[in-house]
Amino acid sequence: MLLANIAQNLNLNPINEPSADVEVTSGYASDLLSDVLAKAKNGAIWATNQKHINIIGVAVMLNLAGVIIAGGIEPDENTVAKAREENIPLYITETSLFDVAGKLYELGLRST
């Protein structure tokens, strides 16, 4: 599934979208970055309520397809700057983390 389809389906607000022509192979939802580091797969779209700059570091390390900050939470300025610098797709949405995860699941994504 392409990132563009997910962004459209979930009506995500792009904060940084170098390209939406990215293949998304799985999904993950967690607010513990250590848990994401340990369990999320390369190519996953990750939904979280964290807005700290380290979320971009995690996305780079795991080569994630993109990051969604859920629940109407605004990312820190340095988080946005880092996403731009590292070319990490970053989206925000008013939708709750629970609902974002549910919608990703409905689209057919799994965490494994």
């Binding site: 607010d31 513990l32 970055l33 250590s34 964290q50 700290h52 700059i53 340095n78």
Partner: peptide, 15 residues
């Protein structure tokens, strides 16, 4: 776990 900075932010942030 759960309350320590490394579990939550994955690593000690640079700033």
């Amino acid at each position: 776990q759960g309350t320590g900075i490394i579990d939550i932010l994955g690593m000690i942030p640079e700033t």
